[in-house]
């Protein structure tokens, strides 16, 4: 493994290059922004909901800013690589990012090193879209309602299993959060992504699955799995017959999986204001809403302050879940 030492050097080289980029005179000027193409970093590989959000935003922003916005997929380490990359980019408005819930509100609680506090490392610009996390049961699982599932889990602690798309994802946290609220012990079975996690549910390998509506709604609709509940304020128009978790006796239980637009910390105020305005306008377009709805996503525009508040709230909420469930990467 002769290459082990190399990357440190290269990272430094990259940093120096980035520093040089900051020093170039025109880059930091906000008044003629944008004067060159903008990079929009997406922390997942192409294909998922985050990528879809990024591509829609990039396409529409390009039209409105009269400047090309290029999506750059930087997957890896559960969004940590992209987060690190964006935080270290110059705050000149030419590097923006789609940040999912987990990157800003869960990752900082579980990382051992390189932890990035969401509101000091990034500049929140606007929330873009969200979807709710749902709970589904395998076809061969005896419980058909959330109440029955909780009763079963109470009768045999640790016997009822749930699949997630990975450790320390918003899905994993949703499961642990619910277990904590319901006072039961569930056995967490992590998978590498949503596809295998849902396959395991379909095949009855696990009893329950937590995942976003994007993933679960088609399977629930087709009757392949039992939809138990949705962790949102209101029922979803996609599945009007599935109750919310709050309705079933856990008031206030909500796990939205959202995507926001952020930049590196210290983004000039004018740029934030301009971008927030553009995003709000873009999200008001019916065509955009429709395309988001294709991924079971709902547009959720707001001011930068509202977005920052959302980050603060969720950050505190998941910090508590992480501590209570004893989730560590040890």
């Amino acid at each position: 493994m002769s290459t082990v030492k190399l990357p440190r050097f290269t990272r430094r080289a990259a940093l120096i290059a980035a520093a040089l980029a900051v020093l170039t005179p025109f880059a930091a000027q906000a008044d003629n922004w944008p004067s060159k193409p903008i990079k929009l970093v997406v922390p997942y590989p192409p294909g998922g909901a985050a990528d879809a959000v990024g591509r829609i935003v990039a396409e529409k922003l390009s039209e409105r800013l009269q400047q090309s916005v290029i999506v750059e997929n930087k997957p890896g380490a559960g969004t940590a690589i992209a987060a690190d990359y964006v935080a270290k980019s110059p705050a000149d408005g030419y590097t923006l990012a789609i940040a999912p819930t987990g990157q800003l509100t869960i990752l900082p609680h579980v990382q051992k090193s390189g932890r990035l506090e969401p509101l000091t490392a990034f500049t929140p610009i606007s929330q873009v879209a969200y979807t709710a996390v749902a709970i589904a049961a395998a076809p061969n699982f005896p419980a058909a309602t959330l109440k029955e599932a909780v009763a079963l889990a109470k009768a045999k602690p640790g016997d009822v299993t749930f699949s997630s798309s990975g450790s320390t994802t918003i899905i994993h946290l949703a499961g642990e959060y619910f277990a904590g609220e319901a006072g039961v012990k569930l056995l967490h079975v992590p998978f590498k992504g949503s596809a295998p996690a849902v396959t395991a549910l379909l095949g009855g390998e696990v009893n329950l699955a937590f995942d976003t509506l994007t993933v679960l709604a088609p399977q629930i609709k087709a009757g392949k799995v039992k939809g138990l509940a949705i962790a949102a304020k209101e029922r979803s128009p996609l599945l009007p017959e599935v109750p919310t978790v709050a309705e079933l006796g856990y008031p206030g239980f909500e796990v939205p999986s959202w995507f926001g637009l952020v930049g590196p910390a210290g983004l000039p105020k004018e740029i934030v204001k301009r971008l927030n305005g553009e995003i709000t306008a873009i999200l008001a377009q019916p065509a955009v809403k429709e395309r988001l709805a294709g991924q079971a996503l709902q547009a959720s525009p707001g001011t930068p302050e509202q977005f920052a508040q959302r980050i603060r709230d969720d950050y505190a909420k998941y910090g508590k879940v992480v501590r209570q469930a004893g989730i560590t990467l040890e």
Partner: peptide, 16 residues
């Protein structure tokens, strides 16, 4: 995947 920890990555983010 099971525990979420990084193995043999020597703290290099590209190896995570």
């Amino acid at each position: 995947v099971n525990s979420g920890i990084e193995r043999f990555s020597f703290g290099i983010p590209e190896l995570s």
